[in-house]
Design a protein around this nucleic acid. Sequence first.
DNA 1: CTGAAAGCGCTTACAG
DNA 2: CTGAAAGCGCTTACAG
Lengths: 346, 346
Amino acid sequence: MKATIYDVAKEAGVSIATVSLVINGKGKISEERREEIRQIMVRMGYKPSMIATALTGKKTYAFGLLVPDISNPFFAEIARAVEDEGQRHGYSVFICSTDNKDEKARHYAALLQQKNVDGVIISTGMKELSVLNPLLQGGVPVALLAREFPSVAVPSVVVDDYAGGAAAAEHLISLGHSRLAVLAEQESISSSRERVRGFRQTAEAAGVFLEPLFVVSCGHKDGKDRAMELLQMKDRPTAIFCCNDLLAIGALRAAKEMGMRIPQDCSIIGFDDTVLASVTDPPLTTIAQPIEQMGQKAVQLLVRQIGQPGEEAERIVLPPSLTIRQSAAVPSNDSRYNHLDEKTSG
Amino acid sequence: MKATIYDVAKEAGVSIATVSLVINGKGKISEERREEIRQIMVRMGYKPSMIATALTGKKTYAFGLLVPDISNPFFAEIARAVEDEGQRHGYSVFICSTDNKDEKARHYAALLQQKNVDGVIISTGMKELSVLNPLLQGGVPVALLAREFPSVAVPSVVVDDYAGGAAAAEHLISLGHSRLAVLAEQESISSSRERVRGFRQTAEAAGVFLEPLFVVSCGHKDGKDRAMELLQMKDRPTAIFCCNDLLAIGALRAAKEMGMRIPQDCSIIGFDDTVLASVTDPPLTTIAQPIEQMGQKAVQLLVRQIGQPGEEAERIVLPPSLTIRQSAAVPSNDSRYNHLDEKTSG
DNA sequence: CTGAAAGCGCTTACAG
DNA sequence: CTGAAAGCGCTTACAG
């Protein structure tokens, strides 16, 4: 069997208390003894059992990461950042894919509590408070990542969605577009609403108003269909702002199926800047989220909370940035799809 | 604080032993008492602490998943499959990205052992046995997923790499290609070697021999560069078999940068069939791995081992399948890139 | 049918 | 400078 603290104590001819003290670098023990015991530990291949350590009231050095789906590239990248930063602070992470279902989220939250995790990072959408509340009441530190829940004071890190939407609008308008459309996520997703709001207000400030019919929200799978409807309207938009890259890819496909060329016949701009964006054809111009930084900040918030519970809930807002690739360009008038008047800027 | 078994015992007026028995559905306890105690548990919101449970010699209901990088779509999809099947059996999973570095793998392996996980699924490349051995010697159940380590008897699930390579060759040859190239992964990756072997032998059996210069192995980042070199050779290949989708994407880019059209000027075929494959332009024809099934089988192997240690190490080989999209086609002679004799079949 | 007691592998006051 | 003892929240024989 694996060596326990008793084995090394016996081997060293001391009590387990002494061994415990050297493990934790505590107490006043002669440096010689300390070193001697350390040697014995490595010789015996002794590693303290973290579960015993945890039972004794200390931490489990594990936390949970709730995401909609770990196989979604955005969350996979988030997970990597969280894992690395967690590791840096000594934590392991449990992955929990919820498919954005409150029920699954609740189930995972309860499970994580039973496992006595030191905290949980929530990056999944939640309709109800019923997933957050048990955690909060159980005194489990929580940090929100790329998600918010207005009514509760929980530390969170988000990208400035409004600014992201604004940047998209600015780019499109500077390119000379004036018939703008938006492919949004479900109404319930606050980040998506903010992106649309930023996009709309910035466009309007520039004198470009969004046709109500041109702003549509999509479910998980119907991005392509919605985009196609958009592109089939008369006086169709010359540019589409998509609230995430997956949606943008749907739009790309819709356009391709209709025989349109991107960006000549229609500009498309995405949001997130995951691997996918660099791989599509054409590569996506998109609003980049600082994914790595977001993951890092989230675990830092969580770790701070674990260290000093009851701290004030900080809210970190990170700036997005525009990544220009090739899916957005100056609108052209010579395409067979542009049979309408276009006020092309300079 | 959270309720403990003592709290519910007191509330129910029984001993903690009795409560424990009803928790575990053991012992002979009158159905009324049992039910009464159950009610009390739900009323008090009592959930047994899994860490105490684990200390008592039972399981932690957690296992580790070692992958090169969770943000790599292939492994992200693997992780999702593993998570779901794990969940189905009552296990949570720790993610561990190793970047294919033995040192990181060893570190994670040791950590997982300290955390007393019930097992670990290894899906990361390892150069040395030094990562596997401590686990094996520590009696930690292990299952290999999409990776093998010849010299040790560990349950594993892999795709039939040879057959995958063969399928790629068959497809390309049936399309009429005769100047075939291969973009392989590092020599050390056994699955890649097998794919190349299957590809080569099948081609040769059909009378098509691979130019030695046309078989190159790439590191993590230089797929595009290697592909470009390939495409710049005189008598350049008309088709490239890439040992994973990422490499194929590199080849796609190389071709695009050189002004070549895919598949008209060169056919490209990948391996894996992750999300990426369906998003590129043109969408990738690729050899699909049954990712979900692989993940499921791996956890089943692991769970079986946890249940009955010392079982014989089973090796499960799953068949790959060809997913035809648009990156491979009949070689054309009219391209400016095809200035050379081509024996185009039928 | 149910309780007392030991034990899992640690940590932490408390003595000395 | 170091040890004896209690305790973390459970499970498991062993009695009765």
